[in-house]
Amino acid sequence: TPSSSDVQLTEEAVRRYLIRKPMTTKDLLKKFQTKRTGLSSEQTVNVLAQILKRLNPERKSIGDKMHFYLTE
């Protein structure tokens, strides 16, 4: 149930992760697993996409994979 969620997918939460270290889309999705946020897969993808568009993080390739990151 949504009331059991212990993680919230918010812009501030994403910002904190991306300031700490570069992350791939998969890394981010792991931080906001549906079973922890109570969101559906589709909601998670849509909300995370909107947040990333707003944050407009820097991008770099590490080991062939695109990573996002932010500087303070």
């Binding site: 889309t25 998969k26 999705l29 792991k30 897969s41 998670t44 993808v45 996409a49 990333l52 991008r59």
Partner: peptide
Amino acid sequence: SSSEADKMAAALEAELNDFM
């Protein structure tokens, strides 16, 4: 499952590719 995670990552990347 990891395949569900893969699908979500692919969907997210597709959304962002339009933007980037």
